[in-house]
Write a protein that binds this DNA or RNA. Structure first.
Length: 506
RNA sequence: CGGGAUGUAGCUCAGCCUGGCUAGAGCACCUGCUUUGGGAGCAGGGGGUCGUAGGUUCAAAUCCUAUCAUCCCGACCA
């Protein structure tokens, strides 16, 4: 008998966090690299998680008054050029379409036909402010046409240098909301509202605690007046920007000529916003909850809540066991969790019990119920929780009656665990020495998990940027709930009015 | 685009320095038997133009040249 590995995932988080992350994705069968550099294939289990995210977010957007629409993948090159900062931000990472036909070249191999050269190249959208803005310009004449509150689910392409599954891929899926308003106040309120939607989604559905804050000028979205974000701490104590909401002021409306006449007949530029979350959230979900045995899914987003594992030795036992699990499945599906039927799967594949069990452990199914002849005799199941590893024999009636509270308990438990983790690794730092020590690993060659979130006073200054670059630390945000508190910049000693959040980031 | 490395089975790799029989291992896969309540054992089997194109040689995975691709470190980033 081969000895069972202690953990399903190797290396462990402590041993090598980035590698662990890759292995969890592989073990849970979420996604894999594709033949195209930097692009990923999202496999059914990973896609099901994304679908659940989409479903919830889509509902939240609609509840806040937004409609879905769809805009083109291609954007005329000249559109990008209209907003100077925007060009600066995205020009370096655009895929460009220059031809529209292929033909065999002199060597017989297909090549873009020189005669099909486009007069104006098209870029594959890295984000859609410009194309959507150009259409809003046509749609808006009067203050009565405002606000426009539209969201689109789409793919975008950013030609990044280095990619990582879910966290940064060349092509990624996201939603982008684009709104236009008659007043700055209204647009600002929209920006705040959507940041709130994201924070709620992250905390209540993903069970991922986040800090809401405003980005500093250096981290701002290209072309935005102000950028707000939610920041989460991963288990390696690095920050992940999980969603952004931008107040674009009139920058894009001026560039795109989104004008309207107000009640007084005066011509005004509209005030616009944009906001988005991407498949990166799946990466955040993985890194927030998963352990050395693989993925752990919060029940509200889990494609399946409970897997039933029928156990039998012989053909004679098979029938009754399957009958039992099937009827139990129906009974569980009649129960509701989070307003929807409990999602149950029976795994009756012809595999040995242990292997099958591990399969679902690695995929993060919240509950596993083993059902064999012994359990049937007692009218019970042997239930395992993925989050705590807790196992117990439970009567069938109890399982049916308590599955919703059990799942709710797992959901809150995951959030609390993540919150505790974040709090344990968040501190106020007041001296440069402490700051440096906090963000410097003991082992420079093979950095161990270190640091965390640091709340420090800050004064915008080039000297700060230099040190941050050296330490590979960034200012994540100015937390919205940061109290006014006079102090001195932790790096330069210059005056500061409040603390900001520093961390290493993805 | 700078610095470093690697391309051999589905995956991870050995073999290369010092050229030589039918190119190997582990995992995965298929078949059979025995097993089965936390990753099974035994036996058998399938799968490779050794990244590509040239060159040297009686003989190339191995040496030489070119080329393509990928990975790691930097600059950039949801």
């Amino acid at each position: 008998m081969a000895k069972a590995a202690k953990n399903a995932i190797s290396p462990t988080r402590q041993e090598n966090y980035p590698e662990w992350y890759q292995q969890v994705i592989k073990a849970a069968d979420l996604a894999e690299n594709s033949p195209v550099r930097g692009c990923m294939v999202i496999k059914p289990w990973g896609w099901a998680i994304w679908e659940n995210m989409q479903r919830v977010l889509d509902r939240m957007f609609k509840e806040t008054g937004h409609e879905n629409a769809y805009f083109p993948l291609f954007i005329p090159l000249s559109f990008l050029q209209k907003e100077a900062d925007h060009v600066e931000g995205f020009a370096k990472e655009c895929a460009v379409v220059t031809h529209h036909r292929l033909e065999p070249g002199p060597d017989g191999l297909l090549r873009p036909a020189p005669s099909s050269l486009l007069e104006e190249p098209l870029i594959v959208r890295p984000t859609s402010e410009t194309i959507i803005g150009s259409l809003y310009a046509q749609w808006v004449q009067s203050y009565r046409d405002l606000p426009i509150l539209i969201n689109q689910w789409a793919n975008v392409v950013r030609w990044e240098m280095r990619t990582r599954l879910f966290l940064r891929t060349t092509e990624f899926l996201w939603q982008e909301g684009h709104t236009a308003h008659a007043t700055a106040e209204e647009a600002q309120a929209e920006t705040d509202k959507m940041l709130g939607v994201y924070a709620t989604f992250a905390e209540e559905y993903m069970a991922m605690p986040v800090i809401r804050g405003e980005k500093t000028a250096g981290e701002r979205f290209p072309g935005a007046v102000s950028t707000f974000a939610i920041e989460a701490m991963m288990q390696d104590r690095k920050a992940l920007q999980a969603g952004t909401s931008h107040f674009l002021g009139q920058n894009f409306s001026k560039a795109q000529q989104i004008k309207f006449q107000d009640q007084n007949g005066t011509e005004q530029f509209a005030w616009t916003t944009s906001w988005g979350v991407s498949t990166r959230l799946v990466g955040g979900l993985i890194m927030t909850h998963s352990d050395d045995d693989g993925l752990i899914l919060p029940p509200r987003l889990a494609p399946k809540h409970i897997v039933m594992l029928p156990i039998y030795r012989s053909a004679e036992e098979r029938g009754p066991v399957l009958e039992y699990v099937n009827s139990l499945k129906r009974e569980l599906e009649d129960q509701k969790y989070d307003g929807e039927p409990v999602r149950v799967i029976i795994d009756d594949r012809d595999l040995r019990g242990g292997e099958k069990n591990w399969h679902h452990v690695k995929r993060g199914v919240p509950l596993r119920a083993e059902v064999g002849p012994r359990d049937i005799a007692d009218n019970a199941v042997f239930l395992s929780r993925r989050d705590t590893g807790e196992k117990q024999k439970m009567s069938r009636a109890d399982l049916v009656q308590t599955i919703d509270t059990l799942l709710a308990d797992i959901q809150t438990g995951l959030f609390e665990r993540a919150l505790k983790m974040r709090e344990a690794h968040t501190q106020e730092i007041n001296t440069l020495d402490d700051f440096r020590a906090y963000f410097t690993p003991q082992n420079a060659k093979d950095p161990e998990i270190h640091g965390g979130f640091a709340l420090c006073h800050w004064h915008d200054d080039p000297a700060v940027d230099e040190l941050l670059k050296e330490l590979k630390v960034t200012i994540r945000c100015i937390p919205l709930d940061a109290p006014q508190e006079a102090g001195k910049c932790v790096i330069t000693g210059k005056p500061s009015a409040r603390r900001v959040l520093f961390a290493k980031a993805y």
